[in-house]
Amino acid sequence: MNPLLDIRELRLELQRTRKESVAVLDGLSLSVGKGETVGIVGESGCGKSVLSLSILGLQPNAMRITGGEIWYKEEYPLHDLKPRDIRRYRGSEIAMVFQDPMSSLNNGLTVGAQVTEMFRLHAGCSRAEAKERAIALFRKVGLARPEALLKEYPYQLSGGMRQRIMIAIAISCNPGLLIADEPTTALDVTIQAQILDLMRQIRDENDTAIMLISHDLGVIADMCDRIAVMYAGQIIEEGPVDAIFEEPRHPYTIGLLQSIPAPSKKQEKLFSIPGTVPGLAERQSLGCRFAPRCGMAVKHCYTEAPPLFGASPGHAARCWLLAERGGQADAIVS
């Protein structure tokens, strides 16, 4: 299958001082197929948000793509476009939904102004036409009394409503890819489920691909076809949902899965991976970036960075164990 989005060996550097820069993302490859939902998980600070932002050239000012490529629909080199040109893809081809629906809408503008603006921006609609379409869209994302809603200000609405509006705005131009960076983290559980249902509905109706970033492995398991596990600016394991959950190969992934609270064994102390993520500068000198925290590290791990080893079709992990022990990582941990 031809990928919709194809990220190849992406390297993103943060300019620390005039002379010094450090890699935030390093040799990162990831592809998303048409209509596919790919989940991205990983500890805080591993670069999930920065990755999603860099796809549309929205990375923080101090960061720059210094290597690799980002292709959209195989013919548009997003990594290589001028700011003016990349803007055309934002919202119309690739749209984003952010974590906090309380701050991603502008409180100084009515909901209507913000939604209709999207149509005017991309579709060049008239004001009246844009309003019509906004109302239809609001119905579609399950917002009641859409006409009245258009005249209200975001601060008058609940978090769930605001996130529905954000999603409505994001899908307003029928994007091929929807990037959602922790879209439900700020919402309570019932609303969370509703928003996820909405995203599923959108995916099924429009064949929209989704890149879903979340800390919640339950959400990921529920929504995604494939999972990419990130650690310290790299993808350290990638594969189909079932493979990752049932046969995780990288010690970090295994630890991550063990740290999910299981509803049945409430009393047990939760497992957590010891140590912390290495700093941006520190990473470069490590062999395997997980080595200082890895229970299975051998000498070799500290000196040489492991490449991605295939485990089964479509499933790969960046760990020497796959090369040396034929993929028995899980057995050793438990």
Binding site: G91, F98, L105, E117
Partner: peptide, 28 residues
């Protein structure tokens, strides 16, 4: 650097749009 400005940017808004349609209304 506000989220809503980033969000608008992510949806394709240009500089003039950001200045006059997102930022200015909050400075009235």
């Amino acid at each position: 650097e506000a989220e809503y400005v980033k969000a608008a940017k992510g949806l394709g808004a240009g500089h003039l749009h950001l200045i006059f349609k997102q930022i200015l209304p909050n400075m009235i």
